[in-house]
């Protein structure tokens, strides 16, 4: 990520400690993760210890220090989804993509994540793929959905 982009984000949010969370969010929105050089730059510009910036970046679940896949598959783990079998969907994705929850496939195509409730409980169990909600999901249908995405990417996997 270009540091000038980080500068622009800092300008927009205000160069002060109170803006740290907002700045990191905007950086992640642009880069899809928090690149190390961006964190170091924010620390320098805001005159905050790197330790504090790093603490923020690891405390909040929204942040990722590693690049994520082209397709981010987020399984909602809210209670309503849980009682309708959400844990099985995570396991299914882990099997299908050969990656642990929280991880990204080596080819940077897929990331499997869990989120603690997105407030769409009536649709549970729910999987969100790149922001699109897929409600009342089953393990079988999930496999088919993922297969479809793989195929769309050329089917080389």
């Amino acid at each position: 990520m270009e540091l000038s982009r980080v500068d622009a984000i800092i300008e927009r949010n205000g160069s002060r400690g109170a803006s740290l969370l907002a700045i990191l969010q905007d950086v992640q929105d642009e880069a899809n993760y928090l690149p190390r050089e961006a964190l170091e730059h924010v620390s320098k510009r805001l005159e905050l210890p790197l330790a504090r910036v790093y603490a923020m970046a690891t405390f909040f679940q929204a942040f990722h220090l590693e690049p994520r896949g082209k397709y981010v598959c987020t399984v909602c783990m809210g209670t309503a989804c849980h009682v309708r079998g959400a844990a099985r969907l995570v396991e299914q994705l882990e099997r299908d993509l050969e990656v642990k929850s929280g991880g990204t496939t080596k080819d940077l195509q897929f990331t499997v994540e869990e989120v603690n409730c997105v407030g769409a409980c009536a649709l549970g169990p729910l999987v969100i793929i790149n922001g699109e909600y897929h409600g009342t999901m089953t393990a079988d249908r999930l496999t088919k959905t993922v297969e479809g995405l793989k195929k769309a990417e050329g089917g080389t996997r």
């Binding site: 002060r16 400690g17 109170a18 803006s19 740290l20 969370l21 907002a22 990191l24 969010q25 504090r52 603490a55 923020m56 405390f59 909040f60 679940q61 929204a62 942040f63 989120v115 603690n116």
Partner: peptide, 24 residues
């Protein structure tokens, strides 16, 4: 202010810490 994905920030003092730009 947008939260960062932390349930504990629903607690008032953690929420305020977060607005101040600190961990929740």
């Amino acid at each position: 202010n947008r939260g960062g994905g932390a349930f504990v920030c629903g607690e008032s003092t953690a929420l305020m810490a977060s607005i101040e730009g600190r961990v929740g």
